[in-house]
Design a protein around this nucleic acid. Structure first.
Ligand SMILES: [Mn+2]
Ligand SMILES: [Mn+2]
Ligand SMILES: [Mn+2]
Ligand SMILES: [Mn+2]
Lengths: 116, 116
DNA sequence: GTAAAAAGTTAGACATGGCTAACTTATCTA
DNA sequence: TAGATAAGTTAGCCATGTCTAACTTTTTAC
C-alpha cells in the first residue's frame, strides 16, 4: 500500500503541483475515506507530512521510497513492453508485479533492456 | 491466498499422498490455526473437501484452479531462470509475481521461453 | 459575503489473514 | 492398552484495507 501511495503522491506533486486526496482516490480506485485513513498510516510511518484538509507532502524518507518505486515501476513496465505486451496490460500487470520484484530480478530486467 | 493453498495441496497430494495442515503450515510459513481457518474458507469457496482432523482433498473446481496455478508458477519460475536469476530468488519472486501475471503476460513469457 | 458545491474527515462496519493460549482428537510407543 | 506426543481446532485478539453514512471544512460562484 505505502509504495503505491508514495509513488502516486510524488507523481501528482510533479504533474499537478500538489497531491490531493480526491485525486488519489480516483487514481487508486478507492473512496475518499480510505485515502484519509491510509494517509494517516503513512504519516504515522513517517512517509508523509500533512495538516487536515490540506495537501499532502512527502518527507525525505517518503521521497526516497517514491524514487525507488517510480524507478522500479518504469523498469517493470518497460520490460513487459519489450516482451511485446500491450500498454494496457503492461501497466496493469506491472502495478502488481512491481511489489514482488527483488533487486536481483530488477537488475536482470534492466540488463535485458539495455542489451537490446 | 486460495491460489497458494490449492497449488500446495495439489503438490502435497502428489508427492506425499495426502495434504495435512501441519505440512501446509510449514511450507507457507504460518501457524496451524491460520491453516485451519483458511482451509475453512477454501471449503466455503468450494475448492476443498474435508472432515475435521482428516486430510484435505481438492474438489474438481479446486483441482482446476490448482492446475492453472501450478502451470503458471512453473512458467514464471522458468522465465526468471532464463533471465539468469538464481533459483532461490526466482522461486521467491515467482511466488509473488505469479498472482499478478495476466494471461497475456503469461503467454509472452512462454513465447520467450520457446524461442530460445 | 453568503449559499451551494466540492473536498475531506469521522465513526462504525466488514473481510482477510495473521497470531497465541488453551483445548480436543489422533497417533505412536513402551 | 495406557500414556505420551503430535496434530488439529477453537476462541479471541490484532493489523490492514476496504466501504457507507453522516458530518465538517474549504472552495467556488453568484
Ligand atoms: Mn503497484
Ligand atoms: Mn506502480
Ligand atoms: Mn504464490
Ligand atoms: Mn506458487
Amino acid at each position: 500500500m505505502a509504495e503505491d501511495y508514495v509513488e502516486l503522491i510524488a507523481e501528482l506533486i510533479e504533474t499537478r503541483g500538489e497531491a490531493r486526496p480526491v485525486e488519489i482516490a480516483e487514481r487508486l480506485g478507492v473512496k475518499p475515506p480510505t485515502v484519509t485513513k491510509n494517509i494517516s498510516r503513512l504519516k504515522a510511518a513517517g512517509l508523509v507530512r500533512r495538516e487536515p484538509y490540506r495537501a499532502i507532502f512527502l518527507t525525505d524518507a517518503g521521497q526516497d521510497l517514491a524514487e525507488i518505486c517510480r524507478r522500479r515501476h518504469r523498469v517493470v513496465v518497460a520490460f513487459l513492453l519489450s516482451l511485446g505486451i500491450d500498454e494496457e496490460t503492461a501497466e496493469r500487470d506491472a502495478e502488481g508485479i512491481e511489489h514482488h520484484v527483488s533487486g536481483t530480478t530488477l537488475e536482470a530486467f534492466e540488463r535485458r533492456l539495455n542489451q537490446k
